[in-house]
Amino acid sequence: MNLLQAIILRDLRIAYRQGSSAMLGVGFFALVVTMVPLGVGPERDVLLRIAPGILWIGAALSSLISLDRLFHADAEDGSLDLLLSLPLPLELVVLAKTIAHWISSILPLILISPFLAMMLGLPADAIGGLAIALLIGSPAFSLLGAIGAALTINTRRGGLLLTILVLPLYIPTLIFGVQSVGAGPGAGTDAITANLMLLTAITLISAVLSAWSAAAALRINAN
C-alpha cells in the first residue's frame, strides 16, 4: 500500500511540476467544445441535443493527449527499470500510475465540464448528471488508455498509434456515458440509473483488463 501511494505521489508531483500538461488537456477540451457550435451553428435546440455527446467525445479526446507520456516518459529516462524492479506486482504499478493520470489529467476536465455544459445550454440537472457520469465513467479512459500506452511504448510516433488503438475501446463508455446524462429522448430516472450502473461495470472491467494487459505489454516491451 505504501509503495502504491509512493508511485501515485511521485507521478502527481511530476505532473504538478510540469503544470502545463494538465492545462493543455483542459485547453484542448474547451477548444473542442467551442469548435462544435462554430461548426454546427448556435441554435439552442441543436446544441442541447448534441451537448452530452460533444462533452463526452471532448473528454475522451483530451484524455488521450497526456496518455502517450504515461509510460513513455519513464521508459525514456530509465526510471521504468526502477518501476519494473519494485517488490510489487506490475499490475499494481500500472494501476497506481493510472490513478495518478486520472487525478492529474482527467479530474481537471471534469471540473471544468459544468461550465462547458452550461455554455452548450444544458439545464442544471443534466449538468449534475453529466458530472456524475464523467466521474464514474472517465476512469475507464485512463485505464484503457494505459493499455495503449504500454503497447506503444517503444514505437516511434506512438502517440498517433495509441489514439487508433484506444479510441475503439472507449466506445462503450461513450455510449453509456452519453445515455446517462439524461438528455436522451424519453430518458427517465430508471434509465439513467441503469446506464450509470453499466458505466460503473465498464470502468471496473477496464480496471481488471488494463492492469493485466498493460503489465503484460510492459513486460514484453521492456528490453
Binding site: G27, A30, T34, L38, P42
Partner: peptide, 29 residues
Amino acid sequence: GDWWVWDARVTSVLILFFLYLGYIALWET
C-alpha cells in the same frame, strides 16, 4: 436569459482567451 450565448462577439472574445492561453503555454513548454 442565459449564462452563455453563442453570439459572434462573445465567441470571438472566447477565442481570444484561448489565444492567450496558448501563448502562455508556449512560454511554459
